[in-house]
Design a protein around this nucleic acid. Structure first.
Lengths: 243, 243
DNA sequence: AGCTTTAAATTTGTCGTACATATTTATTAA
DNA sequence: TTAATAAATATGTACGACAAATTTAAAGCT
């Protein structure tokens, strides 16, 4: 019976209707990024609505990152970037964050990162290679007590490789992991005596494959590294459960 | 000099401050999904602000999917789901949609879907296998003139396999592709004489591997299928450019 | 006593007015 | 010509009033 009859009355509020019209103009490229929107006063006249409904519509658009509102200046179509793109994903993961998600992320990394590293070996530029090199050098020279900095440099290593793939979909798909890792790093990257040297060896091996543009070697080396990372995570988890 | 001094005055509007406090309560699980928020009147008293600023804060939260506002009833913490999770991603892809993105998506699928299918072969349930079976059967019996329906069934086949992996991160990462495909399908899934039979053969082969829980066979078969899909897309693109 | 209908209360949606505050533009002074 | 000041512009917040959807309470009917 749900198809036979549908609501006669539109359940959208006025502000949602306004939101939709402005959003559609943005999606249709009628309002390019950076362009200034008409003032509140002008938009109220255009839409024949009160300032309240219009402002509420604009708050909705602003909250979703579509427009920037500047007091005293005006409202501008924002340049929607990757950070905006993953904002709702990050919120979702924050709300659903648990150990199961970490396990799934670890599993996905094992599936995806060797493939990504293989592509990166082919697509990497001199510049991206230098950035990867720097992350390794910084890790080597990082003070042993700077555990957080160490984990961040490991994270950076992985992120830079993903960037080197040059595939925008891949980069965006992996970005939530790298954004979440500051939160997980004490779990994922084991703080164990001698671990750093093991890790540096893995990084060097991957770097060599990238440098040599050897996709298969890169794939194999990254697979090994992720397996190692996941293994130490499982061990750490079991140790924690035993206590 | 940027670290030495920082803005004295907080640039956040009052409504953004309110938004943040309510959001934090939600993130901290103080306000679980489904629970009713205090009324506007109560919140105005709690925060000691006017109704205007509060409503604008609530519009921001509502626009991001964190709360549902029901006229005459009240405001509720929403059950943030996968659809919400990918909403900003889908917006990003809509704003940046071009052929380059399609190529990147195709490339990512070649990297990821064989791995996903391999995992699905291990993790699939009887139920998920039956759903995959149904999508193939529906494709076989689909009328030859129903080009859109055909493409949607192909899409469903792929989506069901990804679901069968049982990995939440993987499912979410691939969801934008399946959401975007209705838009791309006339490009991605070639409408060529005889193509449907070729495709059904690929689907059957993958299905057999899934049924047999043969991860390597599943991986190889899916790789072959994606290569085929990507190849016909490139051919179609070149044909289009020639005209 | 239980169910249905009607009325009242509650809660969010929209409008209009007023003033505050940040930014931009225009005018004046050096 | 440049710098300082004033005026205008544009968004931020508050308040009061009324509209409209939902919920609750009361009245009416069987």
């Amino acid at each position: 019976m749900s198809i036979l009859f549908s609501p006669i009355k539109d359940s959208q509020t006025l502000s949602q209707k306004i939101e939709r019209k402005i959003e559609q103009a943005i999606r249709d490229k009628q309002l390019p990024a950076g362009s200034k929107l008409p003032t509140e006063h002008e938009l109220c006249k255009m839409f024949a609505v009160s300032r309240t409904a219009l402002r509420e519509a604009l708050r909705r658009l602003s909250a979703r990152g579509l427009v920037d509102i500047k007091k005293g200046s005006g409202m501008y179509v924002s340049d929607y970037n990757i950070k905006d793109a993953i904002s709702s994903l990050l919120l979702y993961y924050d709300l659903k964050f648990d150990n199961n998600l970490i396990l799934h992320i670890n599993q996905a990394r094992l599936m995806f990162e060797p493939e990504i590293t293989k592509l990166a070996a082919i697509n990497r530029s001199k510049k991206s290679l230098a950035e990867i090199r720097k992350s390794i050098d910084d890790l080597i020279s990082c003070h042993p007590d700077h555990i957080q900095a160490e984990a961040d440099l490991i994270n950076l290593f992985h992120a830079k490789i993903t960037e080197s793939s040059g595939n925008s979909f891949v980069i965006i798909s992996m970005e939530p992991i790298f954004s979440l890792i500051p939160r997980m790093r004490n779990f994922i990257y084991a703080n164990i005596e001698g671990e750093r040297d093991v890790r540096v060896k893995f990084h060097e091996k991957i770097y060599s494959a990238l440098e040599a543009k050897d996709g298969d070697a890169a794939h194999a080396a990254m697979k090994e590294l992720i397996e190692h990372t996941n293994k130490t995570y499982i061990e750490k988890l079991q140790k924690y459960n035993k206590e």
